[in-house]
């Protein structure tokens, strides 16, 4: 079976009403072999989107609700003593799945966040003396709730940098909410399965790595990221790291593949830039104290760099 990423997109859209930005971000992260950070209020079908993606790929889905009393072993796994066998056995944690939803990641202490983020980076987990390789493909979608900030542990900058892109999710439109009522008030949620296989995903990743990026476009990406560091704005405390440069190029390649092209266009880069930079640019305290929209600041920086 040679399914295309758009088959998976359609399968997820059969389940989710609206939230096109989330669905596209999930696919981009999947193709670009990265992880996704989502910020938005609860009740916006984030779990359903992840479950729908895993079902469409015939992959395994696990969800971890991050709480202040969570331990690293609750995420990655642990060794327990089996009385019948009279020996220690390894119980693998929920991180061993193809699609993992880390719900409200900022509610758990730093050591738990660190355990998950290390697994995301290394693609393997060491429990006791044994190292276990995580499944491939492996996609983590972490969520953060902006409404209840009390008792949360903000993700450090270095940890945020590990996410390929960040999406801010908003409420659906009135029409979309009406469609949600129509779809979910009567029947149970139906997930579309067998839209693609895990082998297809691996093939897309290989294809995405071969998507051509012209030298002018590489220069454009570098200028975009440098623009965040050199912006003479009192509202920007620090710019994005070189990891952002790689992230933009990988996401633009995935975007081109999703559009059925084997070459990247300037539009691909500009459309993914804010997602890759949003969580990597540090805004000063003045942004919140003066009520300034950080998204507008970021888009000003992006628009300030001339596309080739």
């Amino acid at each position: 079976m040679n399914a295309s990423p758009n088959d998976v997109k359609r399968a997820v859209e059969n389940t989710i009403v609206g939230q096109q930005a989330v669905v596209e971000a999930l696919l981009l992260a999947l193709i670009a072999d990265g992880h996704l950070l989502l910020e938005g209020p609860p009740g916006l079908a984030k779990t359903l989107a992840c479950r729908a993606l895993a079902a469409a790929l015939d992959g395994e889905f696990k969800r971890v609700q991050f709480t202040p009393d969570l331990l690293p072993s609750d995420v990655v796994g642990t060794r327990i003593y089996d009385q019948h066998e009279a020996r220690f056995i390894t119980v693998l944690g929920p991180v061993f799945a193809n699609v993992v939803l880390a719900d409200e990641i900022n509610r758990a202490p730093a050591k738990v966040q660190s355990a998950l983020l290390e697994a995301m980076g290394e693609r393997q987990v060491t429990i006791g003396l044994q190292t276990h390789v995580l499944p491939d493909p492996f996609l983590v979608m972490a969520t953060m709730n902006p409404l209840d900030a009390d008792g949360t542990y903000a993700l450090p900058v270095a940890q945020m940098d590990r996410f390929l892109l960040k999406v801010n999710v908003g409420y659906p439109s009135r029409e979309e909410e009406l469609a949600i009522l129509e779809r979910f008030a009567i029947a149970q949620t139906q997930l579309t399965t067998h839209a693609a296989t895990l082998d297809d995903v691996r093939a897309w990743r290989v294809a995405a790595r071969g998507v051509h990026v012209d030298a002018q476009l590489k220069r454009y990406v570098v200028e975009l990221v440098a623009g965040t560091r050199e912006a003479e704005s009192p509202y920007i405390a620090y710019g994005a790291s070189p990891r952002a440069t790689l992230a933009i190029v990988n996401l633009a390649r995935a975007k081109a593949l999703l559009a059925g092209r084997d070459f990247v266009l300037p539009d691909d880069i500009r459309s993914v830039a804010s997602g890759a930079l949003r969580h990597r640019v540090g805004f000063s305290y003045r942004v919140s104290s003066e009520g300034i929209d950080s998204e507008r600041l970021l888009s000003d920086v992006i628009d300030g760099v001339r596309a080739p």
Binding site: D214, L217, D262, F263, L265
Partner: peptide
Amino acid sequence: LERASFTHDGD
């Protein structure tokens, strides 16, 4: 024209 400007040499 956009394609011709940014595609790979093979295309």
